[in-house]
Structure formats: structure tokens, C-alpha cells
Design a protein around this nucleic acid. Structure first.
Lengths: 350, 350
DNA sequence: TCTTAGCAATCGCGGGCTAGGAGTGCTAGG
DNA sequence: CCTAGCACTCCTAGCCCGCGATTGCTAAGA
């Protein structure tokens, strides 16, 4: 072993491993020693390659489906490939433009922008794309509007810097006029302006209500509206492109897909899987067993956070077979997330 | 042939056809003459049944996958079964209660209520459920609120009787104060109140703006807001339960699913397929080729409209294999649509 | 005329077998 | 350390064949 080389592998082993992974990703067939010598000019014979392959298998980077078959990468093999061997990709100008164009025309509504980005990523990556929607917790309060609908009913609308966060209907025990609602709205706006949603305290609200001499029930109404604004969307996902997985030869058998679709529908598991990538700078990759979910042994996920202003507010991910083109998907996910972030910042309510 | 009997079939043929369809739906296996005489007391021998089956096949109600197999229903066979032979089902009290409970707790937001109903129907039916979201065109205008965000920006929110319909940000060429926006909101509300969205004319808006001596650009802002309120959601679908289809033995082969998932993702085709059921009173069923889409030969759809007040505003559908339990799915779809309609009316903003 | 028992005929399906081939690991010599 | 050569392994596809399921037909009986 040569300790200075990537993964403790000498140069030739590293190159052979990279080639096996690359080839397997492209063909979905176990890779034979002869295939390697024929398609790539290694400068050595297939017998030598066989010896190297045997070493790589002993090192845990490759596995053999059966004795008379070629090698396929193990999770560790993919991991080494992703971390140290593969050539990172950057997006073609065409892709980059396409992402920008498709996201530009879309609605300005937060939800729809994110859903569009997810759909786009699903299509471009030809895999299943999903995104966590941002919790509104860390958003900045911009405006609260109480709308008079009838003497005892109204609607409270909370606007954050990312757009409308929530609306909630309320009912009152005593009659109220439109003017009172307007005055209360104004009082609240001057008190709460530019706070983060999570930093708003009941006392702030109470002060405004009391100042105007309004009924105590308003406090509940407003706190409810604020609370629903905070919790809105929390831990829900947008997903798109499940049918792409049907094209992969390894999922021709419907049973394997069944469990993955359940997991996607359920959302919670997926959410947990990517939650810890929120603080990451670069795209994060989880491969097979690294996901820690039995049913997902055959899958990998690429995750990259998207931002609003400075801080990460959600994750954009691609889910596909372990045998996925990692470099390309990382580039696509990054590019989409970047454009999405820019798009969100453009739409900010200042 | 006995012209007085259902579908021109005599009583025994009708009963045998019904039994074949019923049995095939339950087992997914071609039905043999002996199975019929053993599991159902027909009072005749299997040889007689064979003669009847041959007649039914000649009449186009049944087909034989190959000579030494039992019969399976043709589209015409299913059609006769649905229209004339099957025993309609009504929901068990337990199901009814479950639907009510699950829809009651859900959010009051229109979108979410519909999505919940779709998810619920997907789960109960163990098939793919989908719903068209209502166009806001026929909704009643309740309130328009212009929210001041900064001297030259604001947000317009249109509230209809079904909840918030839309929000749109606007930018102005000249400064404006919060009070002016409030006054304009009030003027518009008194003029537009209780009109249907589609009946609101530019002249109504212009009159309010001019009356207050405000800049002409407000007309554009408000018309844009109203237009986006009208067109919102149009022809989009909610769908849920695609993975249920994977459980059906006939879709173990992934290829068949591929096309259907594409169609669901695309939405447009599905939308067109159910659009003409909007005026229907009872659940409508389309079977196999009746759908008019090659890729959907093996599927059937049950569709039932849901209402807001008097008028139908959208459709709730179940998509599954032709071999679906029609009576049960019709009952489930009806029940869900009914509860959904009631739920929407409860949430009406009066 | 309708029903039915009996029976030959059909055809799909699964098991078992085999030949072919792909690919390896090992050995021995350069 | 590399590599040609070769025996060995094991999967795969194809084939055959027999079984079983089911039918349609025939002829006799109600």
C-alpha cells in the first residue's frame, strides 16, 4: 500500500477502481477484466487487471455477484470514487441557461417556486428529485393584516419576507368594526416589524392589544395566526420524477420500487435522511447502507442546501440507484439549488 | 336472446357473466367453468356453464387468454356488469365515519382540504386517487386587501368565499401611503362585494380608483390581482396512491406502470379524461378503451364531482386496473366527494 | 330442446437437463 | 512484477417434456 495515494490505493488500483465504477454506472453490467483492457488503454494485460481486481475486492471496494462474473462496486467503492477518484463536473452553459429560464417564468409564490425547481431537477437528472420546504421559523416578519369579513369573523394574514406565510380565519365573541381591525393591524406592525417569527413573544402582542383597549380574545387570535405562520409547511416535501426510476434496469422488478415509493409518500423518513445536510457547504452524498434504512440499500441520495439570503433554509435532493452518475447529479443539484436561491432572494419582500 | 332482460342476456347468462366478473376481480385469474359450479351454486353442470361461456364469448362479453384457460371479462363485459349486473354498494358506517373524521381535522385551506381528500381516497381505495382543483372563476368575491409594504411596493390579496384565492405583489411608479391603500381597498370592497369573480369588469375597478383620485396604475394592479385570482389552480391535479398500483399482480411488470405514471405526472391527459364528468350526477365509470388513450387500455377510472353550494366545482377520481371493485370504489368516491363538499360548504366565507 | 357425462385435444407452465460462454484464479515462465 | 495459458466455476438460455388445467365436442338422457 502506498499511504500517500488516494484511499491508500496506489495509482493503478485507483484508476482501475474508478474505471470499474464508471463503467458499471454506464452499463449496469458487472465489469470484467477484459472489458477494462479493451475499452480503456491500461497498458497491462487482463491477467494483471484480474490480480488488481482481486486485491480491490479483498480491500472491500468491489464485490462479485458470483464467481464467473465481473466486479461491481461496493458501497465503499462508490464512496472512494465519489470522495477521491471521480472528475467533478460543472454544468454546461446550456443546462445552466435552461435551469435559469425554467425557474424565471414560474410563479413568485414560494411553494410553487420550490415545486418547479423540484420538477425541473427530476427531469434533468432523470431520477427522483425532492425538496424540503422551508420552515418559516427563521423568516422575518413583514406584515400582519386583519381583514374584516363580518361583525364577528375575519381573516388574519401574516406576510413574511418570503411572501405570504399563512392565512387563518377567526371568530370573535363580540362585535368588532373594520376600523378597529385596521388600527390593531397597524399597532402590531410597528411593534413586530423586522423581528424573526420565532422571536415574537406573546407580550409584544398583548401590549398592542391592551394599548388599544381591545378585547383579550384578540391575543389568542393573533398568536394562533403567528403560530400557524411559523409551523406552516414544516417538514413537508415536494417530490417529482418517481417514474424515472422505472427506467432503471435494476428496478424492473416492481417489488423494489414499492418500498421506495412508500418512503417517498411517507415523507418523514426522507426528511430525516437529508435533515443533517442542512449545514453542508458542498453537495452531500449518501450511498446505500449509509442511508441507514434497510429498504434503501440499493439507493443513493445527493443533497444540497438552498439559501435565502445568507442562511440555508431547505434541501434539494436527488434520489436514485446507487449506480447513479454522481458527478453529474451533484452538478445538477448544485446548479438548481443555486438558481433557486437566487430566485428566492430576488423575490424577497424588503 | 330475451329482449326484456339486462343487456339482451337471459337471466342465467347475466348471472354467469356477473359471477365471472366478480370472481376475476377478486382473484385476477381467468375463471374456469368448474370454478363457477364449485364456488357458486348454479344448479347446472360445468358443461352447461361452458356452453354459456362460449355464448358470452361470442357475444363479446368475455375473452379467453388462450385455449386452455378460463375466461376474463372484455371491456364490454365490464361495462354490462357496471351498468346492469352489479350490486351497488353503500359505505359502511365505519368508513363513513373515518372519512368524516379524517377530513374534519384537516386544515381549512382549500388546497389542503382537497389534497387530504385525495390522499384519503387513495388510501381507502388502495388505488391511485386524483382530484381536479376548482377554477376560481365561479367563486364569489368577498374581499380585496391592499397591503402596504413600502412606499412603492405592496401586496394585493383577494379573498373569495372559498378562502384566500391569491396574493400578488405589485410595484408602483409613484409613492403611496398606507391610508390610501386602505381607502382604495374599502372602496373596492363595497363595489365588488358578492359578485362572482368572472363578472367583475374593469369599469367597476376604474370607478373606484377614479373616485378616490388615485393614479391610473392602480387599475392595472388590481385587475392583475383579480385575474390571477381567477386563473389560479386552473387545471391542476392532486394525486395520491400511485404505489398502490404496484401491488396489483397485473402491474408487476414495471413497463406497464411507466406510461401511466407519465400520464399522471403530465396531468393534462387525466384532466381531459374526467372533465366531461363534471355535470354528472352519479359516479361515472370509464373502462379500458373507453378512455380513448392507448396507454390506458388496462385501466379504468371512476369519477364523481364534488360541489360547493349548488354547483359542481371539481372532480374526484380513482384510477386503477380494469379489474377493480367498481361498486366499492364508486361508493368510496361518492362518499368522499360528499363529505368533501360538505366540508367546503362549512368553510365558506359568508 | 336443453342438459350433462365423458373424453379427446389444446396449450401454458414449470422442472430438469444441457451446451455454451463468460469470466475468474492459478501456475509457470519471461 | 507481468502475462500467457488453461482448468474450473457458474450463470444463462434454450430445449424438451410431462403435467395439469380447461376447453369443445359428441352422444345419450331428461
Amino acid at each position: 500500500m502506498n499511504p500517500g495515494s488516494p484511499g491508500g490505493l496506489d495509482k493503478r488500483k485507483a484508476y482501475i477502481l474508478a474505471t470499474v465504477v464508471y463503467e458499471y454506472i454506464a452499463t449496469a453490467e458487472p465489469v470484467a477484466s477484459q472489458t477494462l483492457t479493451q475499452k480503456y488503454h491500461l497498458g497491462v494485460s487482463s491477467a494483471t487487471v484480474r490480480n488488481e481486481l482481486a486485491d480491490l475486492e479483498a480491500g472491500g471496494y468491489l464485490v462479485q455477484p458470483h464467481t464467473s462474473a465481473g466486479r461491481i462496486p461496493s458501497d465503499a467503492g462508490y464512496r472512494t470514487f465519489v470522495d477521491q477518484l471521480m472528475q467533478p463536473e460543472t454544468l454546461q452553459a446550456a443546462d445552466r441557461r435552461r435551469i435559469r429560464d425554467e425557474l424565471r417564468d414560474a410563479s413568485r409564490e414560494l411553494d410553487e417556486v420550490i415545486e418547479n425547481a423540484t420538477r425541473l431537477l427530476g427531469r434533468l437528472s432523470k431520477n427522483l428529485a425532492f425538496a424540503t420546504k422551508p420552515s418559516n421559523d427563521a423568516q422575518t416578519f413583514r406584515h400582519l393584516q386583519l381583514i374584516w369579513l363580518s361583525a364577528r369573523t375575519g381573516m388574519a394574514i401574516v406576510v413574511t419576507s418570503m411572501g405570504v406565510a399563512s392565512q387563518s380565519l377567526f371568530e370573535l365573541a363580540a362585535d368588532v368594526g373594520p376600523d378597529e381591525l385596521t388600527r390593531l393591524s397597524n399597532a402590531l406592525n410597528s411593534r413586530l416589524g423586522n423581528k424573526m417569527l420565532r422571536d415574537i413573544r406573546e407580550s409584544d402582542v398583548a401590549a398592542a392589544v391592551d394599548e388599544l383597549g381591545l378585547a383579550g380574545e384578540f391575543k389568542t387570535v393573533i398568536m394562533t395566526a403567528l403560530r400557524s405562520a411559523r409551523s406552516g409547511e414544516q417538514s413537508t416535501l415536494a417530490a417529482s420524477g418517481a417514474q424515472n426510476l422505472l427506467d432503471q434496469p435494476e428496478f424492473q422488478d416492481a417489488r423494489k420500487l414499492r418500498s421506495i415509493l412508500n418512503i417517498v409518500e411517507e415523507q418523514k423518513t426522507l426528511y430525516d435522511l437529508v435533515a443533517d445536510s442542512m449545514t453542508a457547504e458542498a453537495p452531500e452524498v449518501k450511498i446505500g447502507h449509509e442511508l441507514g434504512v434497510d429498504e434503501m440499500q440499493d439507493f443513493s441520495i445527493v443533497t444540497v442546501p438552498y439559501r435565502f439570503g445568507e442562511s440555508a433554509i431547505g434541501m434539494l435532493s436527488v434520489l436514485g440507484p446507487r449506480r447513479m452518475p454522481y458527478a453529474r447529479l451533484m452538478a445538477l443539484a448544485s446548479g438548481t439549488a443555486e438558481t433557486l436561491s437566487a430566485r428566492l432572494s430576488d423575490a424577497e419582500i424588503k
